[in-house]
Each structure stands twice: as C-alpha cells, then as structure tokens.
C-alpha cells in the first residue's frame, strides 16, 4: 500500500497541499482529479519521492519513502510524466533500457536479462515494433507508451539474481509496485486515449501494477479508476470508490460546475456531462 498521511507541502512560502490523506491499496487503480492548481502534480511528485513532505509521512508498504534508498525506491515506484522531451537522439530500446538503471552497478552494462526485460515491457505496451526507431521521431502516443515501457522496466527483477533481496527486510512475494501517471491523455487523440486507458487497466489486471492517474478528464477517470481522490486548493474534498465519489455535488464542490452524472448503458461506467458554471 502507498499511503500519504497528514501530508502538507509548500513551494517556498506558498502552501500547495494541506493535511492530505490518500491511500492507494496494492493492486489499486486510483484517479486524482481536480482543477488546475489544485495540487495534483505536486501530490504526484510527493508520492514519487521527488519532493519531501513538509509535514506528515508517505509510506510504501509501511516504509517511509523519504528514508528509502533512491535506487530501491526506483524499483518500486515509477513515473510517466506528461511529456518527455529529449535533447539527443536515443533509440527506443535505449530509452527503455534506462529503466534498468536502479538494477545496475556503477560500471555494469545492461546484460541479456535486462534486454529481455526491455523487450518484454515493449511488448506489454504494444511498442515492440518501434524498438530501433529514434525516440524523437515518434508520435505523442507512441512516445508515451515507450516511456511507460521504460517505467515498467524499473519494476522487473532479473530471475535468480540477488538484486531484489535488499529492497526491504519484510518484502513479501508481491510487493507494491506503483506506476504514477501525470495527465496521460492530455496530448492524445481519442483513439490513443482509449488505448492508454485499456493499457493501464490491462497492466493493473495482468501484472497487479498499482496505478495512480492524475487527470483532468473526468470520463477517462470514471471509466478507468476504481477509486478517486478529488482535490481543490490543496485539500482532499472527497475520496473513495468512483461510484460513491463522482456525484453532481462533489463535482460542483470541486469545479464550480453543474454537472449531470449518469451511468452509461453500454459500459456501465459513470459519465459526466458538464451543464453550466456555478
């Protein structure tokens, strides 16, 4: 379980998050929703261990992530940022192999097992055919999938190797591995949005990859996520199972928008139709 407890954070003197409580169960699929400036991305950075909380704690399977070794944490928590821009022309395979960094010693080169893992994650994200392409020449949707493959490569352990043993003293057979996604659909067309949702759901189902998705897209979140956290002005307005949280009242409270929420006949997902600004 990834758990943020009484977490607050400020940039310089500007407070961004106040007393946040969020828990992401192992194998969970949690959406973080909220208007611009509500603290979604900051929360994601805190959950990734990129920023230290000013107060409170963030724990991964009961271990404080600020006390964890960066490389150990990288084997358990990976991030797919909104956009990845490169200054140089790396191949897709090189990008995915960069996900193996936390498993390698200083001068160690990626071995056959790492290559195997990279190819497996490329296959899992449907990008195996892009392996030899230059990353910069890919479309936005392809880039995102490759970055996701690179993130997944962080989780994989080399079978029989000892590199997983020092992760945590109490490590069980199925530790929490969390994929944090920041606005995964913001630059994608409708078809790729759908493909991304399918991919995240599939990873969650097949590999028990825990996922936290920050998004503006209420319908994307409603269709994908089992639980939602609604933020406004750095505070949690509502959190819980999607069906309970996504109501006209909470949407009004978070976005100042009057909305109609109904269950879609075919998908059985909740669907949000914004009606007017309040």
């Amino acid at each position: 379980m990834l758990h943020a407890e009484h977490v607050s954070f400020s940039y310089d003197a500007r407070p961004v998050l106040h007393d946040i409580d969020v828990s992401v169960p192992t194998g969970g699929l949690v959406g973080v929703l909220g208007p611009n400036g509500s603290g979604k991305t900051t929360l994601l950075k805190l959950l990734a261990g990129l920023l230290p909380p000013a107060t409170g704690h963030i724990t991964l399977d009961d271990l404080d992530i600020t006390a964890m070794d960066r490389r150990m944490l990288a084997r358990r928590i990976a991030v797919v940022p909104q956009e990845t821009e490169l200054a140089f022309d790396y191949s897709v395979l090189e990008i995915v192999l960069m996900g193996r960094y936390p498993h390698l010693q200083t001068f160690e080169l990626e071995g056959p097992a790492d290559l195997e893992i990279a190819r497996r994650t490329l296959a899992a994200t449907g990008t195996a055919h892009l392996e030899q392409r230059t990353f910069r020449t890919l479309s936005g949707g392809e880039k995102q999938r490759v970055v996701m493959a690179s993130a997944l490569a962080q989780f994989e352990r080399v079978p029989g190797a000892s590199d997983g043993q020092d992760i945590a003293p109490d490590e069980d057979a199925n530790p929490t591995r969390v994929l944090l996604l920041d606005e995964p659909t913001s630059s994608l067309d409708l078809s790729f949005q759908l493909a991304t949702a399918t991919l995240i759901a599939e990873l969650n189902r097949t590999y028990r990859t825990t996922a936290v998705v920050c998004t503006h897209d209420l319908n994307f979140a409603a269709g994908l996520c089992r639980d939602l956290v609604l933020l406004r002005d750095g505070r949690v307005v509502a959190s819980g199972p999607t069906d309970e949280v996504l109501t006209p009242d909470t949407i009004g409270a978070v976005y100042d928008v009057e909305a109609d929420v109904h269950r879609h006949e075919t998908t059985q997902h909740l669907t949000v139709v914004p009606l007017a600004r309040l």
Binding site: L50, R70, Y90, P102
Partner: peptide, 23 residues
C-alpha cells in the same frame, strides 16, 4: 569515467532521472 550512464538519464530530465534512482 563514472558519469556516462547518469548523463544518459539526465537528458530525460531531472525528475525522470531521479525516479530512476539517480542522485
């Protein structure tokens, strides 16, 4: 001599490098 692989990751951006275990 110790830098090259870390430099590869730095070109992904500071945050992307940090979440992959780079100091």
């Amino acid at each position: 001599a110790r830098l090259p692989r870390a430099l590869n990751l730095l070109t992904l951006g500071a945050d992307s490098a940090a979440v992959r275990g780079i100091d």
